[in-house]
Computed example of a mutant assay.
Amino acid sequence: MKKLSEKEIKNKLKDFEGWEFHDDSIQTKFEFQDFKETFSIMTRIAFEAEAQQHHPEWTNVFNTLSISLSTHDAGGVTEKDFKMVEAIENIIEVD
């Protein structure tokens, strides 16, 4: 998969509020009502990540979920990452 240029990444990020490009990855942070809701969403994202064979780097502290996506094989951000962003956004919208 082809690594996207910074210009391509920033253009695509216009479609996703709250996501930013830093350190060769696209990143965001979500805040939920409590730990239970956060962990529930993480579980749903995990199932989608497994289906896509594309696993985010993430951290969770109480009700906050921080996510970082990049395609390690390509050495940066690819279309695969944006497919995962879209899936994450759809999971969070449904909740």
Rank of each mutant, 00 (worst) to 15 (best):
D23Q: 05
Q33Y: 11
K36H: 06
F30A: 01
G18V: 06
A49Y: 02
E37Q: 13
R44L: 08
Q33N: 15
D15S: 14
A46Y: 07
P56I: 08
D34H: 02
E50G: 11
S40W: 03
K14D: 07
D34P: 14
E20M: 09
E48R: 08
F35A: 13
T38A: 13
K29Q: 08
E50S: 00
I26F: 07
E50I: 05
M42A: 13
W58Q: 15
G18D: 12
K29M: 08
F39P: 08
D24G: 09
Q52L: 15
G18N: 11
E48L: 00
W58V: 01
N60D: 06
I45D: 09
E57L: 13
E31S: 15
S25V: 08
A46P: 04
G18E: 00
E57S: 10
S25C: 09
I26K: 03
I26E: 03
Q53A: 08
T38V: 02
F47K: 10
R44G: 11
H55E: 07
K36W: 02
E57N: 09
D24I: 06
D34M: 03
K14I: 12
S40I: 05
D23A: 11
F21E: 00
H55T: 08
F21Q: 06
M42D: 02
K29I: 04
H55K: 13
T59W: 12
H55Q: 07
D34E: 07
A51K: 15
V61Q: 15
F21G: 01
A51L: 15
A46T: 11
F47P: 12
D34T: 04
K14S: 13
F16M: 13
S25L: 07
T28I: 10
E48N: 04
L13S: 03
A46Q: 10
T38M: 06
H22P: 00
E50P: 00
L13Q: 03
T59K: 15
H22Y: 04
H55V: 14
E37D: 02
E50C: 01
K36N: 09
M42Y: 03
D24S: 09
H55R: 14
A49R: 11
F35E: 04
D15G: 11
G18P: 11
W58H: 12
E48W: 10
Q27Y: 12
I45Q: 05
F16Y: 12
H54T: 04
P56W: 02
A51F: 05
L13P: 05
G18K: 13
K14F: 05
A51W: 04
E37W: 00
F30D: 04
E20T: 14
D15V: 02
V61M: 06
E31L: 06
F35T: 07
F39Q: 09
F30Y: 14
T38G: 10
D24K: 12
D23P: 08
E31H: 04
E20C: 02
T43V: 01
P56N: 05
W19D: 05
A49Q: 00
M42F: 09
M42W: 06
E20F: 12
F32S: 13
K29F: 11
E17N: 06
N60C: 13
T38I: 05
F21C: 03
I26H: 00
E37L: 11
E48F: 09
F16G: 01
D23S: 02
Q33D: 09
S25D: 10
D15W: 03
F16D: 02
A46K: 00
F21H: 01
H22M: 08
I26W: 07
G18H: 01
M42G: 03
T43S: 12
I26D: 10
A46N: 12
K36V: 01
Q27F: 04
D15R: 00
F32M: 03
